[in-house]
């Protein structure tokens, strides 16, 4: 059984203060954005999916493997997590060595790891930096290195934690393409993310978390049609959605291209 099945989990760091309660959700193939205010429990949630934390009650099955029964390292073949701050992982002297670290850990041969790493760097557009010292790159490029280092492990599930942070327009476009390509290859892509425009342009499904609970879950377009609820949990509508409303249109628009095409047809 592919995907992640979350069966009615709860979790708390200190007793009596639940960080997550009664979460029941199934991720199959759709690329999914996890949105919500800081402190809503998003990071805790993905740490549980990744097996870094174990649920207090309930079970999580990652491609059929119960996270309670496997170590994080054993799960690493199945599920990759790209951390927010690339400086939390980089320790090798060259980009290529850094990217090869994960693949080698999960049993790829050096040659295989090199192949996969070069491919990942190629995909991300920084293969020309392969022999540089990661710390000679800008922070936003280091972030791309940390993404490549997970791609090269070829897990069928990849979670991103705030991938767009500090990225400029081109960086975001590149990320969008990577995620869409992964999706096309059949990889399950999940991401915690604050950038609503990016959510609207990239993800098929969106989950809204608030105070440790999932308060909205559905196709991205439907989620952003709940304007009041989105505002109630201190989030914003994507700018294209705001513009659509301002133009007096009933439908929920996710991208500016949708709006342009819609109104051109009308004219």
């Amino acid at each position: 059984m592919n995907g992640i099945k979350v069966e009615n989990i709860s979790f708390s760091y200190t007793e009596g203060q639940p960080v997550l309660s009664n979460i029941d959700v199934h991720f199959r193939q759709e690329s999914t954005a996890i949105i919500g205010q800081n402190g809503a429990g998003k990071t805790t949630f993905v740490k549980l999916l990744k097996g870094l934390l174990k649920p207090a009650t309930g079970n999580i099955y990652v491609n059929g493997m119960n996270t309670q029964e496997y170590t994080v390292a054993q799960l690493a073949k199945q599920i990759g997590l790209v951390f927010q701050n690339p400086n939390d992982q980089i320790f090798k002297h060259t980009v290529i060595e850094e990217v090869m670290f994960g693949p080698k850990n999960i049993g790829q041969s050096t040659e295989e790891a090199r192949q996969n790493s070069l491919l990942a760097l190629e995909k991300i557009g920084i293969v020309h930096e392969a022999d540089k010292n990661p710390y000679d790159l800008s922070l936003s490029d280091r972030k791309l290195v940390s993404i490549a280092s997970i791609l090269a492990m070829k897990p069928p599930i990849i979670i991103f934690d705030e991938p767009t942070m500090g990225q400029d327009y081109l960086g975001k476009e590149r990320l969008k393409k990577i995620m869409k390509d992964l999706r096309a290859e059949g990889v399950l892509v999940l991401s915690i993310i604050h950038d609503m425009d990016f959510v609207a342009e990239t993800f098929e499904r969106t989950i809204v978390m608030n105070q440790g609970k999932i308060v909205l879950d559905g196709p991205t377009r439907e989620v952003f049609s709940h304007e009041q609820l989105i505002r109630d949990v201190y989030l914003e509508l994507p700018h294209a959605t705001q513009l659509g409303k301002q133009l007096g249109l009933k439908q929920t628009f996710l991208t500016v291209d949708e709006l342009i095409n819609f109104n051109r047809k009308k004219q």
Binding site: K47, K50, L52, T71, V72, A73, A76, K77, G80, L81, F83, N85, D88, Q89, F101, G102, N105, I106, S149, I150, M153
Partner: peptide, 14 residues
């Protein structure tokens, strides 16, 4: 956090 990040890349720490 660093420990989590490296375990996520298949590093056994225990």
């Amino acid at each position: 956090t660093i420990k989590d990040a490296q375990r996520s890349r298949g590093l056994e720490t225990e």
